[in-house]
Each structure stands twice: as C-alpha cells, then as structure tokens.
Design a protein around this nucleic acid. Structure first.
Lengths: 253, 253
DNA sequence: CAGTGGTCTAGACCACGTC
DNA sequence: ACGTGGTCTAGACCACTGC
C-alpha cells in the first residue's frame, strides 16, 4: 500500500521519468529534505546535466521544490488542502454559462475629488471619473460595479460607450496603461437597501463584495467595487501542487 | 506615451533581454499574432537556439504566449482584469494573521450511510465518517467545518486527535491518499439559526459557504463543507499575466 | 576550496503541421 | 519537403554557499 502511485505510464521522455522518480521519492519519504543535485541526477540516470536540470526546474515551477543557488534543491512543505477561486470578468462568466450578457451604465461623470476612502486607496485626490455599471445575465442583474478612475490618466473614458466596450481593454489598448499589479479583497456581506434595489433583490440578501485596486507601474489607476449576488457560485476544479496557472473557471449554479 | 515601459534595467542575461524585447513588442503591437520562431530569434539576437527557446518557454509559462508544435508561437489574448482568491487551511490563516489558532471537535463518529447529497458527491454510499470541527482564532469561532470521509479508506481517523493534527496530513502521510484533484464551489449565504449558533453570531449574518470534494486518483475521498464568517476577508495581491502559482495570501480585515 | 545552481553554446534527432 | 516546437547532449563559464 506504500506509494504505488499510478505513475506507471512508461516514461515518454527521460526528463519526465526523472521527475516521476523524484515525486515518488518524495511521496515515499525517501527524500524528506534535500533532493539529489543536478550532477548526481545526471550521473545516476545517465543523462546530461541539462536534462536532469530540466526535471528539477519543472518541479520548482510546479511548487513542489525549492532551489537555492549554491546550496541545493529542497522539498517544499506543501500546504495543500488549499484552493483558489478565480474571478472572471463578467463577459467571460456569461460565455462560460452560455447566457446572454449585457451591461447598463447607471452613471458616468467626473468628480472634483474622489470619496475619501477611494482617495486613500488610490493615493490620489485629484479629479476622478466615476462609473457605475450593472452587469446582467439574461437581462437579470447579477453584478453591480462602482468604479473610480484617475481623471488625469483616463479622461477620455468619459466619451466612451461603456455598455459595449470593456474598460480593461480601453485602459490597456487605448490608454497604454498595462496592468502590472492588482490588490483585491473579498468579503461576504448582506445587501443594504440601496444596493439591493440596484440588484433587484430583497434587502438583507447575501452577496460577495469585492474591492480591487489596479496599478500600472505602482501607480494606482482604478479602484473598483463589485457586489455579486451570493447564489452565483464560483466553482473551480484543479489539481493541487500549484501546477501552473489557475484554471479559468466557471460560474456554477 | 507609446510603450516606453520601464524595462530599462539593463539586461542581466541574454534570455531576459530577449523576453523584454518580446514583451515590449507585444505591448507596442509590433507582434499582434505570431512571434518570431526560435531560429529567427537565435539569428537576430545572435544567441543559441536554446537561449531563444528559453525566453519563449518562459513567456508561455507566464501565460503571455501559446506555443504550438509544428506551427509557431502566438500571443495569447489575455483576459486579465481577472483575479483569484486563495483559500488557505485554517492553521495557515492564523499564522498569517498572527493570532492564536485552536480547533474544537464537535463530533466524530461513523455513519451507516452518508446523507444523500454527500453520497452523490462522493459517488459512494457505504460507511462514512463524519467529523464536525470548529476553527477558532484567538478563541473566537471563525470557521465551521463539516466533513465526511470514506469509511473504507479512512477508518483509522476515528482514533485520531483531530484537535491537534491536520486531517490533510493524516490522509496524505499516514493513509497514503495523496490529493490529486479538488473540486470546490463558493457562495455567499446568510446563516440559519443552527449554523449561526455554532459560529456564535446572530442569525442572518453573511458567511462564505464552501463545498469541496477531494480526490485521490479520481476516487472521491472526502467531502467538506465550510462556513466562514463573512467579515474575514480573503485578500490577495498579485501581478496579472498568470505569472506562476497563486501567491499564498492572507486573511485581511 | 569543492559543490551547488544559473546561464549559455553548437550541435543533434524527433514529432508535428503546412504546403 | 520544410519549418515549427520538443527533447537531448557534452561540454563551458559564472555566482553563490558552505566549510
């Protein structure tokens, strides 16, 4: 019963074979701290150093191992049982769900000064643009968006039709403001009267509340706040071990 | 204003330099669909094919590019403005927050048959083990866990002290049941009387509700249900472009 | 100092798509 | 047949860590 894992698919490549051996070794606790070095692997498996190296590097990018220059390769204590939830742009959610997507612009105007909390999060208190939108699936509101943008960088957005174009594309493609960093937080909340009315649900219903600040080169460009109906589940399925990018995923029911 | 991105740090390595040039090229729309091939890059930059290749491969693992054998390397339309939230095991949350962590076992016993919904999710209706635990930060309940495990695979768990050891470690290390796949769903809900009482909050308070099924080799091993107080924010900060693994992250307030 | 990982080279053969 | 990416080799030099 000990670690007879189904790595039985015959090794299609030497690199893969080495990886599998190392993974089995870690599972079987043959390697508990340090893994063989590149040269050792190359010798014992009879391959070139570059091949042995590739196996180790891939294990590192998969999060199973940590490599420290001058010291060696060490097994990383996995904190698995962990998971992540992907938040997709509304338009993609709709595609995944195969429902009709539409956006309504509730408000679009410039502000002399942003609200204090926004000013703090953007570290900026000059002119800003406020955009409030409602994202609907099959005509029913599911996501309420309240967005502030730096007026000095995004002024032209005032003249765009935000019901048909993506704000993100405007920023990246037209305004040359690539996203370089994102900060965000999600909480579960109950909706107050005003917000519930916008989403057309009874007061007190649960919702996800997301705050997000997006940066271009450490300059905050836009702050957005979402209220998403709580029944709309974020659903994910993935293989742990931090293998590669988070899979793009669905909104389930 | 055109794509004078701060990639001005002088190229510490040839590979990095090539990557930067390619990224600039994509930003500046010089490459809108196809990127130069490995051989072309090697020739124009005067490096070996392996070096040019490394640059392209890294761009692929960073999610910026797609490589198709026999065809070429293509820029991937990013669907950014996307994000993901990491759900950590309770113990790590507490460490991140630097608060005292404790677990109380509310119930631990075997069931003749699992509840119908669990039976369906596990595709199994034999004997199961039910474990209910309450995870506390600084003595205050924050996460309520209801877990079902396959009795035939995890029987020995009945004799473990689940207030001190991690169920995940038991499965992986002692029972040789590695996690190979996870399915999960999160919703925002309001707490009913029973659940609110367990978490010691008023009825109707918002909470995250997570359902998770964990597999070993396509065999469902355990189903877990969490209720997490809604004020406990999941907070993340990351660079988009799907660079590498999701960063482990905090619980913020 | 010896050993580690990080980078790079100039070849090679293969599997796959396109024409 | 040709070009693409995927794999691999047998060297090389470097930067860093440990003793």
């Amino acid at each position: 019963m000990t670690s007879q894992e189904p790595l039985r698919t015959l090794p299609t490549s030497k690199c893969l074979y080495i990886k599998q051996q190392l993974i089995q070794g870690m599972r079987a606790k043959r390697f508990t701290d340090r893994l063989p070095s590149e040269n050792q692997l190359a010798a014992t498996f009879g391959v070139s150093r570059m091949t042995a190296r590739k196996a180790l590097v891939e294990l590192e990018t998969e999060g199973l191992v940590e490599r420290i220059r001058g010291r060696g390769t060490y097994v990383k204590k996995s904190d698995p049982a962990m998971g992540y939830f992907v938040v997709q742009p509304s338009r993609r959610h709709a595609e995944t769900l195969d429902v009709a997507y539409s956006t309504r612009v509730l408000e679009l105007r410039s502000l002399e000064k942003p609200p204090p909390m926004v000013a703090k999060r953007m570290a900026y208190s000059g002119m800003t643009i406020l955009a409030r939108r409602l994202h609907c699936f099959d005509g029913k509101p599911v996501r309420y968006e309240i967005r502030h943008l730096r007026g000095d960088l995004c002024g032209s957005i005032l003249f765009e039709d935000l019901e048909t174009v993506s704000i993100h594309e405007l920023l990246v493609d037209r305004l040359d403001l690539p996203l370089t960093r994102v900060w965000q937080r999600i909480t579960a909340e109950t909706l107050d009267a005003r917000t519930a009315a916008v989403l057309e649900v009874p007061v007190g219903r649960p919702a996800f509340h997301i705050l997000r600040t997006t940066y271009t080169h450490d300059t905050p460009v836009t702050c957005v706040e979402y209220f998403i109906r709580g029944e709309l589940a974020f659903e994910d399925s993935f293989a742990p071990g931090r293998t590669g990018p988070p899979p793009g995923l669905g909104f389930g029911h």
